[in-house]
Design a protein around this nucleic acid. Structure first.
Lengths: 203, 203, 203, 203
DNA sequence: AATGAATGAGGGTTCATTCAT
DNA sequence: AATGAATGAACCCTCATTCAT
């Protein structure tokens, strides 16, 4: 049982790197087997197909994020700080697992329609989680009136666009990596909070 | 000469649909040839490779956007309206050419490193164009202090995330398609403009 | 393991015949697979490429010849007899494996520069082996003064030209096949030995 | 008419270089057209097929050699000198037209069986010409008893093997190019003439 | 005479997957 | 549980040749 998990980790670890570098479609099972130092047969013993490997990787990454978000919710922080933590989370995961992050940006469209739908659904879960936080902020009068889900997608888009750019190798990427989290968190908060001081004063 | 262009349009048209539906890597030349009702040889007479077809599609789409942006600049509209137009452009292009839009979201990561770099560079050009608009807003005191390029990426990310979600087939997608442009334009402007009334009053 | 070798022999056997008949470039992998009654995938499981098949065939043929030459050297025969045996070897191999012989004459120039260089190098090894024998003959005063390597190439050229002609289907070919070995061996020996009787008498 | 010939020379000239460098099968019509700065259509206007181009090249080269041999015969030189001239001819043609020479060594086996037979027949003509010279030598008692045609092939093989090796780029090639003609001519003559002094004395 | 766009069969090779061991 | 040899459809692309202009 320990060896199961160990072998599966070896496989997903190798696949993660290769998928991120070359793309899902362009990565062959032979390459995965060689990188993981495992036989092709062994891979098929543990995974139904190449797609199943990708599915496992994506699912585990999303689990990480959901665990983080649930833990975050449990801490009962003020809204502004929650926003800041979420942004920071993205950048931390980025630094820690560049390959996975890159992979995560990618294959949201690529594989079979079935898998694509699955991945987008999982992505939707994160968005809905953020929407819940926004809803809470609305209820507490800390967030200006808005459509929560649409706003959640907007925020995730902001973070992704900047962090994606920060994955590059040039100076701009370095700048984004350094200043991105703080500037993003500040402007997202400002944007959500927009004019609420006055409104609350009126109320 | 007319027939040249006509055949090339047939090819890119077919490829556009197939790439968007199945992905670049998963689309075969045979499929493109059949869909375009053209021989494989003819395709290779007009395009060096499969990548060259994608490149052409992406480049033409980018050209469309750049033409739009340049025309927009020529009109000398107030900043707020420029922002609104840019957001609207994205959604219009989305409605008009769903396949191309979907394709445009995709292959920014997938193909060979060479092509990937090329696409990201073209994407960067649009971002820089937006950054210029923001810079002008800064100079005129209409935009709060910010890092223009980072802000440009942020905005494009917001728009992309929402419009990508709007490409789906469900109710949420319909909602996003209907309310997205206005809400996005309004909140982006508020966010850029944030507190400038007061600052300008001080000055 | 036995089956490995068996399958590889089936592949090289089929390829040998086809390469010899149609030429390396004009022989397709599909034809090899069908002739060998093996799947295309199986071929690529055992050989990296079409060139690798040719390389194996050539190398094994050269090994056969080298083994023969080494064994010949071990027997310590007088020089004249060694010459006669070498010529006879060529004709025996010719009779025994017409396809390989024909192939051997061919692709010394045709394939990629890399492979061509490799083949010519292997051919050079045989020439050098013959040069060593000539050198020994020089040392023993049995061979007239000459440049050994140049003479070796000359001898191989003589043998090849005649045996190549003997591969044909007409009367001349039959004549060459019958009388070639003896006449060649005699004249090569005469040519090497040229005037040594007198010189040795003088000494 | 002048322009016909000019254009055809451009085509055969380009093809000669490419066939010699890359091989007949590996050289495409497009490459020939580009190198000759001529349209593909124009090539097909002057030559029935790719094989027809090769055929023309080979035929012209053989014509050159036959013209040389006929002229040689006309001069009524002593046999020894004829041998020396024939060897020298090979090396001169080699120096003068390296590409053609290389091509000449090659495609004697490669193309379609039909063309192959044709080329070998032409090669046979040269051999037979040499055989006639040997026959004359036999009749005049200048050449030791031998099978003339077999001896002719032997001689051509000697010359080819050495001159082929002389086409290389290394030191051995340079040595062969410098010393080859003289050493070959001398030893071939001695070898043909072998012991005839004595025999003639007896007679 | 000359062009070059168009053809489509065929090229070598890779692929995810299966299955006997 | 684990192996890796075997499969053969599908991959992208090149080819000599044709033919409307």
């Amino acid at each position: 049982m320990t060896s199961h998990r160990g072998l599966e980790k070896k496989i997903t670890g190798a696949a993660e790197r290769l998928f991120a570098r070359d793309g899902f479609a362009a990565t062959g099972m032979r390459a995965i087997a060689q990188t993981a130092k495992v036989s092709i047969g062994a891979i098929y013993h543990h995974f139904k197909s190449k797609e199943a490997i990708l599915e496992r990787i994506i699912r585990e990454e999303l689990n990480r994020r959901q665990r983080f978000l649930e833990e975050l919710r449990g801490r009962g922080l003020p809204l502004q700080e929650q926003v800041q933590q979420i942004v920071q989370m993205h950048f931390d995961l980025l630094q820690e697992k560049r390959d996975t992050a890159r992979l995560f940006f990618r294959e949201r469209f690529d594989p079979s329609p079935v898998l694509r739908a699955k991945i987008q659904a999982l992505y939707g879960e994160v968005a809905e989680y953020v929407a819940v936080i926004i809803q809470e902020g609305l209820a507490m009068g800390e967030v200006r009136p808005c459509q929560p889900l649409l706003t959640a997608y907007t925020i995730l888009g902001m973070v992704e666009a900047v962090s994606l750019r920060a994955l590059g190798q040039d100076e701009t990427a370095a700048l984004f990596m350094k200043e991105g989290p703080e500037e993003l968190a500040r402007s997202i908060w400002l944007w959500l909070h927009l004019g609420q001081e006055e409104r609350r004063a009126h109320a």
